[in-house]
Design a protein around this nucleic acid. Structure first.
Length: 507
RNA sequence: GCCGCGUUGGUCAAGGGGUUAAGACGCCUCCCUUUCACGGAGGAAUCACGGGUUCGAAUCCCGUACGUGGUACCA
């Protein structure tokens, strides 16, 4: 086999979707597994949908995931340029070649005329008429018009597109790496536009031309492309490049967890989880969408989750580093069916990756999430906090939820948890404890606990009845690590201040 | 409508003629823990349906149903 070359070819129209990242991942893994090259190509052929900043955003996402391309618009490479808008001249040339060979034709129909055709031919049996062998002779194109008319229209600079002339009654067979043999009847496929009136190619022409020119050996893309595969196959053939055609693999879709259909940005908003890799702000509408990164996911976990959504190693291993994946990935273990995204499992993966981080690493990762809340987090202190609470955190954002009391006194105190069983002897105990605690020489958890126990015993109080109140006073609620660990961390005076404050509220 | 692709517990899934049909997430019970977690032990829950082929089908074939994608001068 020639050196493996794969590409991810997004169009810069907005946030980078989960499914998109998974396509990147599988491309990347396949390439690296085979010692090949991963290319990023920007498919910006639709000027109407172009969004400023989207390309940089995609690059940032790939960088965060650790899936950097070997060739790209910013990095360059032997097949530059890597933006289709900068490769315009190629497409025109090949479209012309197809016309000359009789495989394509000029079409002068206006959008209104197309609309008219669709309504004119619309029946119950055929609700969406296509521009195909049944209708093309009723339209204004170089097949239906005389040569003189065509020359005249062209000469006047009449806006026109170039369409592929789909043959009739031909069965196109394709071998898909994931699905095996797939067949299509060309009579059912329409005459796709290859070159648009603005001179830009459509996806169909561009993907074939660029895959050829960039020597792509394996083309992976979402399953939604499968129906247009016969168009691409034919183009490879008509352009005379059949022998160099890449092997195809159509990846299963990622579906909504509930209901039906492809997972969309809206589902994330509706169900409360991210869909984009990173935060995305649409420059046109100002609309912000949360990403996995900002939601507190580790890139290792994000990649791991995506890898397992549609692929498995055949073993019981579930936690894979990128390196593990590169070593073990194989395209024939990719599933055929779509997978519903399960956010609960996604969080579990992240938790597993949190456990695998050292406290030093976690402190650095968690710091921005703590500072975002307006707290000051010194790394050595944060390292200790993180050690105490990491096993109850699924997301990086959980570190604040689970440990805010290490940084500032709790604002909300769940008095209801203790008020019912409160009495004067407890008030006395805690008042005296504040005083007595100044006698503790070594302010560590064990020492504090020992003094606490002794004092409780001396007063005939049960330690168990006092620990929950202490926790509520220090933390605000019924959660968190060992209460004496917390006392040790926040220090004696802070402990005392919190106790006294709650005592007042109870009082 | 038509065409393509798919279908193993609620979810991710292993298994591809003979298995007690793995495992994970989630859920439930219990243990550990004077909080919450983590950890440990259990539990409920699955081969879409109907026909074949076969001694034997979750596995192979054909239908049906359902799901999903496509049917743009969007990708």
């Amino acid at each position: 086999m020639d050196t493996v070359r794969v590409r991810f070819a997004p169009s810069p129209t907005g946030g980078l979707h989960l499914g998109g990242v998974r396509t990147v991942l599988y491309n990347y893994l396949f390439a690296k597994h085979h010692g090949g090259t991963f290319v990023l190509r920007i498919e910006d052929t639709d000027q109407k949908r172009f969004v400023a900043g989207a390309e940089d955003y995609i690059m940032n996402c790939l960088e965060w995931c650790g899936l950097l391309p070997d060739e790209s618009p910013v990095k360059g490479g032997p097949f530059a340029p890597y933006r289709q808008s900068e490769r315009k001249h190629y497409y025109y040339q090949y479209a012309q070649q197809l016309i000359d060979a009789g495989y394509a034709y000029y079409a002068f129909d206006t959008p209104e005329e197309l609309e008219h055709m669709r309504s004119r031919f619309k029946t119950d049996a055929n609700p969406v008429p296509q521009y195909d062998h049944l209708t093309r002779m009723d339209m204004r194109n170089s097949l239906s018009l005389s040569q003189e008319q065509v020359i005249e229209l062209l000469g006047k600079g009449t806006p026109h597109v170039i369409r592929l002339r789909m043959p009739q009654n031909t069965v196109i067979k394709m071998k898909d790496l994931i699905r095996g043999e797939v067949e299509f009847d060309t009579s059912l496929v329409d005459d796709k536009v290859l070159l648009k009136a603005d001179g830009m190619p459509t996806y169909h022409l561009a993907v074939v031309v660029d895959d050829y020119l960039m020597k792509i050996t394996h083309a992976f893309r979402g399953e939604e492309w499968l129906p247009s595969a016969p168009v691409h196959l034919l183009l490879w053939k008509y352009l005379g490049w059949e022998k160099e055609m890449p092997q195809w693999a159509h990846l299963p879709l990622i579906l909504k967890p509930d209901g039906h259909g492809k997972l969309s940005k809206r589902d994330g908003e509706r169900l409360g989880f991210p869909v984009f890799a990173m935060d995305w702000c649409d420059p046109r509408t100002g609309e912000k969408t949360t990403g996995f990164k900002e939601r507190g996911f580790l890139p290792e976990a994000f990649v791991n989750i995506l890898a397992m959504l549609g692929w498995n190693s055949g073993t019981e291993q579930e936690i894979f580093s990128l390196q593990d994946l590169v070593e073990q990935f194989s395209i024939d273990r990719v599933h055929k069916g779509g997978a519903k995204f399960d956010y609960e499992k996604a969080k579990w993966f992240n938790q597993q990756w949190i456990f695998r981080k050292t406290n030093e690493e976690l402190a650095v990762l968690v710091r921005p999430f703590i500072e975002r809340k307006g707290a000051i987090a010194k790394l050595d202190y944060l390292e200790k906090v993180v050690a105490l609470i990491k096993e109850r955190c699924h997301l990086l954002t959980d570190f604040w939820e689970q440990g805010h009391f290490f940084f500032k006194a709790p604002e909300e105190i769940d008095l209801s948890a203790i008020a019912g069983k409160w009495n004067q002897s407890k008030t006395d105990f805690f008042n005296d404890w504040v005083q007595a605690s100044s006698d503790i020489k070594s302010w560590d958890a064990a020492e504090i606990e020992q003094h606490f126990n002794e004092m409780a015993t001396a007063r005939g109080l049960k330690k168990g009845e006092l620990m929950l109140p202490l926790r509520i006073m220090l933390v605000g609620g019924k959660y968190g690590p060992g209460v004496f660990d917390i006392a040790a961390m926040i220090g004696r005076s802070e402990m005392s201040a919190r106790i006294q404050r709650v005592l007042q509220q109870l009082g």
